[in-house]
Amino acid sequence: MSQVDIAEVSDFLASEISRRTGVPQSVLGPSTVLVDIGLQSLDAVMICGEIEDKYAIEVEPTMMFEYRTFGEVLQAVGELLATV
């Protein structure tokens, strides 16, 4: 993905997090701390898998644990996609 559509990635990520935590997408912002909204560690790993499948890239299972906030994770995914 040479042209990263970060808004699309943001929507996808937010929907996955919302689906697994029950927190509405509208509440999620760049500074939302994922642990604070109840994202479980297994869900974090599973979201890595969803990202891997959706964008056909290899994602490290540790990725979601290296960043605290929604914005930080989004940036990391964006950077990963830009390198593909």
Binding site: L42, V45, M46, C48, G49, E50, E52, D53, P61
Partner: peptide, 15 residues
């Protein structure tokens, strides 16, 4: 698998 080299198509995640 092509000419003995395996390229991953997908892997499952989770338990």
């Amino acid at each position: 698998v092509r000419t003995g080299r395996a390229e991953r198509l997908w892997r499952s995640w989770g338990p």
